[in-house]
Design a protein around this nucleic acid. Structure first.
Lengths: 343, 343
DNA sequence: TTCTCTACTGTGAACGCTCACAGAAGCATG
DNA sequence: CATGCTTCTGTGAGCGTTCACAGTAGAGAA
C-alpha cells in the first residue's frame, strides 16, 4: 500500500543486522559508529566489515529521536522579494555552505521566507528543533528574525554584520571599511581627485562602513570631501545607473567612481556610456564584491573581492562551534583589490 | 552537557502533553494530526485547542521512524564544475521548487554532487531512505545518477528531457522544438532569410530539439538549409561568442541568428558588436530561456520564455504523485515568444 | 589468594510517534 | 433481546537508535 510502484525499496539493514553479522551487540556497533572509543581492535574490525557487507547506513531519524539533535542545519533566506536570489553572490555563498557542511556529513535545508506566512511556518519549524542551527542570509540586516532565533536559543550565524550592535549574534563578514579604503586609495593612486561614490543602503552596516572607508582615505590624502560626490544606492543595477546619472549631473568634473557593489557598477557603466564618458580614460570605476558581474561587464570591473568561499566556510565553522557549546563569535575577513579594465 | 550556552531550548511538548491537556488519548491526537478522520467534532476541537495552548509541533523524527517516510525531498544538482550554479535559470528553479514544497510543508534538502566522492556520499544518503524523492537537475542529461536512483526505487523527477528514451524516468521540460519553431518563424516574419543558428550541445535532447525546430520551419518556408549557417555551442557565454564569430566568418551575409540560450546570445551580441554589425538592423538576434541575461543584454533580447515557475511546480507535483504510488510521467510545457529589442 | 582497576561488552529502557487492534457506544434491524 | 453495523476512542507494541548501567575478563598490586 505504501510501496512505490517504481520498484520498491528493500528494507534497509539495521544496527541489529550489523551486530548479528559481526557477532557483537548493538552497543558495540553503536560505539564504533560514534567514534570507536572503548572498543577492541578486533570488534572494531568485525563491525566495519559487517557494515561494508550489509551496506548499513545509520537511520538518522532513530538517532535524532534519542539524541535530540537533528544533525542538519538550515540555510535561511529572508527576503520580501526575490531580490537576493538574483544576486550572484548568493549562489556562491549557498554552494560554499553546502560544501562545507557536506564535509561534516550534515545536510542543508534550504528555507526561503518571502511572505509573512512562510516566515511563521519556518520559525515554527526551526524552534521545534528540526534543525540544530541556522545560517542566516538577510539583506536588510535589522531583521527581527535574528533576534527571535537568538531568543529561542537557536544557534545562529549571520552573513554580514548585523545592525544592532549589542545583539550578540554570531556573524561573518568581509572587512567593508578596509576594502573601501583599498579601492579609494587605488583610485587616488591613479591621479584622480574628484572621486564620486555610490554607497550601499545606509541603514545597513555594510553600506555605512564602505562609505566610512571612502571618507577616511580622502581625508588622510588631504582631499576635500564634497557632498555632491556622494549619492546613496541600494546594491541593484538600476540603483547604480540612477546614482551615476545623479553624480554626473551634480559633479560633471568627476574623474573616478567608487560604486559599492558590482551590480550597481554595471548600472553605472551604462550611465557613463550613455553620457559619452569613456571608462577608464575619462572616469575610472571601481566596484565591490568581485561577483560574476565584475567579469561580465564591459569593461571588466576593477573591484574589491569578498572572499565568499572563506565566508561560507567560516559561517559553518562558527555555527558548528556554537552548536557545540561555544560562545557566539564575530569573524571579519580581509578583502582584496582585483585590478581589471575599468581603472 | 549537550545544552547550548546561548540560552538553552526547553524540551518541546509531546503528543502526550497535548493528549493530557485535551483530555483524550495519544491515538486521538495522532488522528487529528493526520487528517482527522474518525474523530468526533468535540475531540477535534479539544485537541486543536490543546495544540495551540501548548505550542505543540510534531516531532518529525519520531514520525519518520515509524512511517518509514522522511517527509523531505532532495534537490540534487550534478555538475562537475559550478557551471550550473552560475546559470541564472537555476536560481529560479530552486526557488520555485522550494516554494512549491513549502506549500506542502515539506523541507528541501540541497545536495550538490560536484566530485565523485560527493556523488557517492549523496547516493548512499538517498538510497538509505533519508529523502522520499529527488528533484534532479543535471545539464548533461545522460547522467547515470538518474538510472541509479531509478534502479534503487527512488522516486525521481528530472528537469529537462533525459537522453535515454526508454529510461522510464519522470521529467518536466519546456517544449524546445516548438519554442525554436516560434523563434525562427518570428525571424522569417521580419523578412530575414539568412538565419544562422548556434545550437545547444547536440548530445542533449534540448540541443537536438531546438535545432530540429529550426530546420523544420526553414523547410516549411521553402528556405534552403545551409550547413554554413549551423554551428554548435555549449550554452555558455563564451561559446556563444565563438559561435557567432564562426558564423560571421562562414556566412557574412547572415541577417538573423537564433541562439539556443540567452547566455550564448549575450556572447553573440559581443561578437556582433566587435564585427561592427548593428543589432537588430544588420542582424536580428533571438535567444532562448528568457533568463535574467535577456533583459540585462544590450540590446535586450527577444527570446523564448521557458516557464520556470510552472516547471518547478510541475516537478514537485509529479514527484509527490510518484511518491504516492503513481507511475512516472513526462510533462512538456509550452513556451512563449517574448519580443524585445534585438529583433 | 583476593582485591582493585582498567578495558571492554551486553542489556534494558527510553526517545515520540503511528498503527493495528480491541472495545465502547449509539442506533437500526432481525 | 440479540445482532450487526458504524463511528469513535484507548492501549500496547514497535520503529532503530543511544545511553546509562551492570557485568566480565584480565592485569597488576597487596
Amino acid at each position: 500500500m505504501t510501496m512505490s510502484n517504481t520498484g520498491g525499496r528493500r528494507k534497509p539493514p539495521t544496527i541489529h543486522d550489523v551486530a548479528r553479522v559481526a557477532g557483537v551487540s548493538r552497543g558495540t556497533v553503536s560505539r564504533v559508529l560514534n567514534g570507536g572509543h572503548y572498543v577492541s581492535p578486533a570488534a572494531q574490525e568485525a563491525v566495519n566489515a559487517a557494515i561494508r557487507k550489509t551496506g548499513y547506513v545509520v537511520n538518522r531519524h532513530a538517532r535524532s529521536l534519542i539524541t535530540g539533535r537533528s544533525d542538519s542545519i538550515g540555510f535561511l533566506l529572508t527576503e520580501p522579494q526575490e531580490k537576493l536570489f538574483e544576486d550572484p553572490n548568493f549562489n556562491v555563498l549557498l554552494r560554499g555552505c553546502t560544501q562545507a557542511l557536506a564535509a561534516h556529513d550534515i545536510p542543508l535545508l534550504l528555507m526561503v521566507a518571502g511572505t509573512e506566512d512562510e516566515r511563521r511556518r519556518i520559525m515554527r519549524y526551526i524552534t521545534a528543533g528540526h534543525v540544530d542551527g541556522v545560517l542566516l542570509v538577510s539583506s536588510h540586516s535589522g531583521d527581527p528574525v535574528a533576534e527571535q532565533l537568538r531568543d529561542a536559543g537557536v544557534p545562529l550565524v549571520q552573513c554580514g554584520k548585523p545592525m544592532g550592535l549589542g545583539s550578540k549574534v554570531s556573524y561573518v563578514a568581509a572587512d567593508d571599511r578596509d576594502g573601501a579604503r583599498d579601492m579609494v586609495r587605488h583610485l587616488l593612486s591613479l591621479g584622480r581627485r574628484r572621486v564620486g561614490v555610490v554607497t550601499g543602503p545606509l541603514d545597513t552596516p555594510g553600506g555605512v562602513d564602505r562609505l566610512a572607508g571612502y571618507k577616511e582615505v580622502l581625508t588622510e590624502a588631504g582631499v576635500e570631501i564634497d557632498e555632491r560626490l556622494i549619492v546613496s544606492g541600494d546594491y541593484s543595477r538600476a540603483g547604480g545607473q540612477v546614482g551615476a546619472e545623479r553624480l554626473l549631473d551634480r559633479a560633471p568634473d568627476m574623474d573616478a567612481m567608487f560604486v559599492a557593489s558590482d551590480l550597481m557598477a554595471q548600472g553605472a557603466l551604462t550611465a557613463l556610456r550613455r553620457a559619452g564618458r569613456r571608462v577608464p580614460e575619462d572616469v575610472a570605476v571601481g566596484g565591490f564584491d568581485d561577483s560574476t558581474a565584475a567579469t561580465e561587464s564591459v569593461p571588466a570591473l576593477t573591484t574589491i573581492r569578498q572572499p565568499y568561499d572563506r565566508i561560507s566556510n567560516e559561517m559553518v565553522r562558527v555555527l558548528l562551534a556554537q552548536i557545540g557549546g561555544e560562545d557566539p563569535a564575530a569573524v571579519i575577513l580581509p578583502t582584496e583589490l582585483v585590478r581589471r579594465d575599468s581603472t
